[in-house]
Simulated assay, not measured.
Amino acid sequence: MATLLDKAQLFRSLHVPGTPVVLPNAWDAASARVVAHAGAPAIIHRRIAVAPAPRP
């Protein structure tokens, strides 16, 4: 199993000048599996991925 340091080094290696890192956002475990299966090198997850609309 990869250590936290291994994961950090892998994530850092994705940051190459001139090549943007595209991080897909997974909403739940199922969407994370789909994104991983599609070949994403990294996936982000946000508890609230869509900000609530301001109330008048």
Rank of each mutant, 00 (worst) to 15 (best):
A40W: 06
I44P: 10
I44M: 15
A32S: 09
D28V: 00
A26K: 03
A8C: 14
R12I: 07
P54Y: 10
I44R: 14
R46C: 14
R55K: 13
A30I: 13
I48F: 09
A32D: 00
R47Y: 14
Q9N: 13
R47C: 14
A42Y: 05
V21H: 02
A8H: 01
A32K: 08
A51L: 14
Q9D: 05
L4E: 03
R33A: 04
K7L: 15
A53I: 12
L14W: 02
G39W: 02
P17R: 06
A29V: 11
L4F: 10
A51I: 08
V34M: 07
A53L: 13
R55F: 03
A29K: 06
P17D: 09
V22S: 02
I48R: 13
I43S: 05
T19N: 09
I44C: 14
L14M: 01
S13P: 00
F11Q: 08
T19H: 02
R33C: 06
V16F: 09
R33P: 06
P41T: 05
A32H: 02
N25Y: 07
P41N: 00
N25W: 08
G18Q: 02
P41M: 08
G39T: 00
H45R: 13
P54D: 03
S31Q: 04
A30G: 13
P41Y: 02
P24E: 05
S13I: 00
G18F: 03
A32P: 01
A26C: 11
R46K: 15
N25P: 04
L5A: 14
G39D: 03
V35M: 12
G39H: 04
